[in-house]
Nucleic acid binder design. Structure first.
Length: 756
DNA sequence: AATCTAGGGATTTTT
DNA sequence: TCCCTAGATT
C-alpha cells in the first residue's frame, strides 16, 4: 500500500478519521462550517492515492451542479487532471446520463425529453381537460404535487389506488397519475422525478445492468444526505449493495427539503440500514464567530435533536448580532443598503462579502429596485431562471421536436406560437384524431390530408410540417446547431413576430434569445461531440443557483434554501416576520415549524463575522398593506448575542406592536448611519401602477448619469454615453466594452446597475 | 382566429 | 399587484 499522502495533515483528527475510513458504510455527521466539503474532497483524493479505486470507479452525488463543480476543482488541485474522470454531479444529471445509455431497455430512446415542473404541469393540465375535469376546480399544480410525492415515495399508480383513495381528489389523482405515466412514455419524456425513479425500475428489471453499475461504482459518496428522498435512498442503496462502500455526509439540523420529499429518516436510520456502519462527527466549526454560533445553537436546540454532536469553535467572540426594526420593506432594503455601504467604507469589506437572505423569492424585488437606485451592485440568484423564460422554453420546444417528434407536450406548446392560424378549435380536432388513432400528434400532422380539418388551418399545418422536416434534414446532414437554430428562428416567424410587436417586453425577449444563441455556440465550440440531444439534456438540469459567482463584486441576494452550502463574511437575514419566516400556510395547516427553524439555523450559520436580523412592521402583499408581527425566532434566539441598532438588548416575548418607539431617533453608536423610521427614504406617494418604475426622490441620487460605469446582466460592463427622455421614458445610450457596441436602453426596462 | 376586457386567484422553498 | 383565462368582440 502506498504511503499516506502528506495532505492528510491539513485535517483535524476527526476529519482524518473520516478520510482514512475507506471501506464499508460510513456516516459523517458534519455540523455547519465544519469542513465537510474538505473532507469529501480529501477522501476522494485519498481513495485514488491509496489505489483503492480508479477515478472512474468513484461516484460522488451532490444536490447542485455548483457543489459538484467546486468539489471537482478542489480534487483537481490535489491529484491533477485525473479528477476529470470521476463520476460527479447531481443525482439528476448523473442518472440522466445513465438513462441515456440504457433508455432502450425500459422503452424509451436516448433522445428522451426532460420535463421540468412547468412541462409536467402542462401535460397534466392537458390530461385533465381530456378527461373533462375543469382545471380551475382541480388544479394541475395540486395533482402534480401529489403525483410527484407518490413518485418520490416509489408508489406505483396501481398502489396509489389501493393506498390513498379516500376522497374524490385521491380518486382523480390516481386516475391522472396512471394516464400521466402512460402519456410521458408515449411522449418519450421523463420528468425530474423519473430521472430517479426510472433507474430503479431499470435496475429492478435487469440484474445484469444493475451489476454492471455496481461494479462500476466501487465507492459511492453522497453529500447533503439529510435532504435525500426515498427514491434517492433506494437507487443508491441498490448501487452500493455489492461493495457497501457508501459514505454519506449530512447534518440533520440542516434538513430543509421535506417539501420535496426529503426524508430525514434516511440519515437518522443510516446505521440501521447499513450493518457495521461507522459514525464520525465533525464538530469543530471553522466558519463563524462564537456569537454567531451561539445564536445558531440557541435556535436549533429548541428542536428535538437527533444525532449527537456539539459544535464548537476556536474563532473570536465577534460582534453581537444587530436586529433591524423597520417600517416596511422599502425601509428595510434602504437600511440594509446603508449598512452595506457603511461596512464597506469603514471595515474594508467588498460588496461580494455580503449576502441578503430571504424566505421567498418575491422579496427580492424591493431589494433590486433599492440597490439599483442606491448604486449597490448585486447579483440575484434564483427566481425565474433563464431557461424557464417563455421565449427560451418556446425555442427549446422547437429544438426538442426535431429529435423527439412524439413529444406532444412540447409540440402543443409551439404549434401556434407565433400564431399561424392553428387555433384552439383546430388543435382540439387534431388532438381528438391523435387519441382516436392512438398516434402521436406529430404523426397526425404528417398525414393531415387524411382528416377533416378547417382548410386554412390544414394549409398552415402543412407548412409547419415541412418547416420542421426541413430543419430535421439539416440537422441530420450535420449542419451546425447554431445555424439550425438561426434558421428556425427565421422560418418559424418567431423573431419576426417579436420584431413586429416592438414592445419593451418583446425587446427583452429578443435579448434573451440572443443569449440562448450564445449558449448554443459556446456549447458547440466546447464539446467534442456536440449533439442537440446532449445540449438539451444538459441545460434542462441547469439551475440559476449554479451561476452564482463568488468573485463578482456584488452583493448576493438569494433564498435561504439557495444559500445552503455557502458562506459570507456578512449576512442579512431579512423579513423575519410571522407568516413569512416562519412561512404562513394556505389553509392554516401543516407548516412544519421545526423545518422552518432549521431553515433559520441554516441562514444564521452562513455568516462568518457580521450578522443582521431584520423585520418589518408592515409589508405589501397583493398590493395590500399588511401589518406584521415580528418572527417568533427573534424571541427564541439567545438574548445576550443580539442588540438593537441603538445597542440596547431586544425585548423578547412581548407583542412588539405595543412598544412605542415612535419618538426614538435611532442613532447608532458603532456606525454613522443615522435614521428616523418615521421618515423613510422613499416617498410612499410615488407608488404607482408601473412596478418596474424607478423613482428618484432627489435627482442627484440618480446614478445613471452620462459617464457612469454600469453593468447590464447580459451585455456586461459598459459606460453611459448619452441620456435622453424623462421619468419612465428615460433612455440611455451605453457603450459595452466586451461587445464593443453601443445600445440604446430604456432605464425602466434594462436592468442596469452602477459599478465601480 | 385573433384581440380585448374583466374578474379571480396567487407567493413558500427546487432538481 | 400581476398573471391567467373565459367570454365577448372584431
Amino acid at each position: 500500500m502506498p504511503q499516506e499522502p502528506s495532505f492528510i495533515h491539513d485535517l483535524n483528527e476527526q476529519q482524518q478519521r473520516a478520510v482514512r475510513h475507506t471501506d464499508g458504510p460510513l456516516l459523517i455527521v458534519a455540523g455547519a462550517g465544519s469542513g465537510k466539503t474538505r473532507v469529501l474532497t480529501y477522501r476522494i483524493a485519498y481513495l485514488i492515492q491509496q489505489q483503492k479505486a480508479d477515478p472512474n470507479e468513484i461516484l460522488a452525488l451532490t444536490f447542485t451542479n455548483k457543489a459538484a463543480k467546486e468539489m471537482q476543482e478542489r480534487i483537481q488541485q490535489l491529484i491533477g487532471d485525473e479528477a476529470r474522470r470521476l463520476w460527479m454531479g447531481t443525482f439528476h444529471s448523473v442518472f440522466s446520463k445513465i438513462l441515456r445509455f440504457e433508455a432502450d431497455k425500459i422503452g424509451f430512446t436516448s433522445n428522451y425529453s426532460i420535463y421540468d415542473t412547468e412541462d409536467s404541469k402542462n401535460a397534466i393540465k392537458q390530461l385533465l381537460k381530456e378527461n373533462n375535469y375543469d382545471p380551475k376546480e382541480i388544479r394541475p399544480r395540486t395533482i402534480q404535487r401529489l403525483i410527484s410525492d407518490a413518485k418520490n415515495e416509489l408508489i406505483h399508480p396501481d398502489h396509489y389506488q389501493e393506498k390513498f383513495v379516500h376522497s374524490t381528489l385521491d380518486d382523480i389523482t390516481a386516475k391522472i397519475y396512471r394516464l400521466y405515466v402512460e402519456r410521458l412514455k408515449h411522449n418519450n419524456a421523463m420528468d425530474f422525478d423519473d430521472l430517479l425513479v426510472k433507474p430503479i425500475e431499470l435496475f429492478g428489471e435487469h440484474d445484469d445492468v444493475l451489476e454492471k453499475y455496481q461494479d462500476r461504482f466501487k465507492y459511492i459518496l453522497i453529500d447533503e444526505y439529510q435532504d435525500t428522498n426515498h427514491a434517492q435512498y433506494k437507487v443508491t442503496n441498490l448501487l452500493a449493495n455489492k461493495y457497501k462502500n457508501l459514505c454519506v455526509v449530512g447534518d440533520d439540523a440542516q434538513s430543509i427539503y421535506s417539501f420535496r420529499g426529503a426524508d430525514i429518516r434516511n440519515i437518522l436510520d443510516f446505521k440501521n440500514d447499513y450493518e457495521g456502519a461507522v459514525e464520525i462527527p465533525l464538530e469543530q466549526n471553522y466558519r463563524s464567530t462564537k456569537a454567531i454560533l451561539k445564536a445558531a445553537d440557541s435556535i436549533i436546540k429548541r428542536n428535538d435533536s437527533q444525532l449527537d454532536k456539539t459544535l464548537w469553535t476556536d474563532n473570536d467572540m465577534g460582534d453581537t448580532i444587530t436586529v433591524l426594526d423597520n417600517y416596511d420593506e422599502r425601509d428595510e432594503a434602504n437600511r440594509v443598503a446603508n449598512y452595506i455601504k457603511e461596512l464597506k467604507a469603514r471595515k474594508g469589506y467588498g460588496y461580494n462579502d455580503f449576502a441578503v437572505l430571504y424566505r421567498t423569492n418575491y422579496q427580492s424585488r424591493v431589494y433590486e429596485e433599492t440597490f439599483r437606485r442606491k448604486g449597490v451592485p448585486y447579483q440575484l440568484v434564483g427566481g425565474l431562471s433563464f431557461y424557464q423564460r417563455k421565449e427560451i422554453k418556446d425555442i427549446l420546444a422547437y429544438l426538442t421536436l426535431l429529435i423527439n417528434p412524439d413529444d406532444d407536450t412540447n409540440l402543443i406548446r409551439i404549434i401556434n406560437e407565433p400564431s399561424r392560424g392553428i387555433g384552439n378549435k383546430s388543435l382540439n380536432d387534431l388532438l381528438a384524431q391523435s387519441r382516436a388513432q392512438n398516434k402521436s400528434l406529430w404523426r397526425i400532422l404528417e398525414n393531415v390530408d387524411q382528416i377533416d380539418l378547417y382548410k386554412p388551418a390544414e394549409n398552415s399545418v402543412k407548412k409547419f410540417v415541412s418547416m420542421i422536416d426541413e430543419l430535421k434534414r439539416d440537422l441530420d446532414n450535420g449542419k451546425r446547431l447554431i445555424d439550425v437554430t438561426k434558421k428556425l428562428l427565421d422560418k418559424s416567424g418567431y423573431m419576426k413576430s417579436l420584431v413586429e410587436e416592438n414592445s419593451p417586453k418583446a425587446m427583452s425577449r429578443r435579448e434573451n434569445i440572443l443569449e440562448l444563441q450564445n449558449a448554443i455556440s459556446y456549447f458547440e465550440k466546447n464539446n467534442n461531440s456536440p449533439s442537440l440531444s446532449s445540449f438539451l439534456q444538459e441545460i434542462s438540469l441547469i439551475t440559476d443557483t449554479d451561476k452564482y459567482d463568488e468573485d463578482k463584486p456584488a452583493v448576493t441576494m438569494m433564498t435561504v434554501h439557495a444559500a445552503k452550502g455557502l458562506e459570507f463574511p456578512g449576512v442579512f437575514v431579512v423579513g423575519l416576520e410571522e407568516e413569512l419566516f416562519p412561512v404562513g400556510s394556505r389553509n392554516n395547516e401543516d407548516v412544519n415549524i421545526e423545518e422552518e427553524r432549521r431553515l433559520f439555523y441554516v441562514a444564521i450559520t452562513r455568516a462568518e463575522e457580521v450578522l443582521f436580523f431584520s423585520h418589518c412592521r408592515s409589508r405589501y402583499k397583493y398590493g395590500e398593506e399588511q401589518r406584521k408581527k415580528r418572527s417568533r425566532f427573534l424571541d427564541e434566539v439567545s438574548p445576550d448575542v443580539v442588540r438593537t441598532e441603538t445597542g440596547a438588548s431586544i425585548k423578547q416575548s412581548n407583542n412588539n406592536f405595543q412598544e412605542n418607539k415612535k419618538d426614538t431617533k435611532t442613532t447608532n453608536n458603532n456606525t454613522t448611519v443615522e435614521y428616523d423610521w418615521k421618515q423613510p427614504l422613499y416617498q410612499k406617494k410615488n407608488r404607482s401602477s408601473n412596478n418596474t418604475q424607478i423613482h428618484y426622490d432627489n435627482p442627484d441620487e440618480d446614478p445613471f448619469q452620462v459617464g457612469a460605469k454600469v453593468e447590464h446582466n447580459i451585455f456586461g460592463p459598459g459606460k453611459i454615453i448619452s441620456r435622453s427622455g424623462k421619468g419612465e421614458r428615460t433612455k440611455v445610450v451605453v457603450y459595452f466594452n466586451e461587445r464593443k457596441q453601443r445600445k440604446t436602453l430604456m432605464l425602466r426596462v434594462a436592468k442596469l446597475s452602477v459599478i465601480g
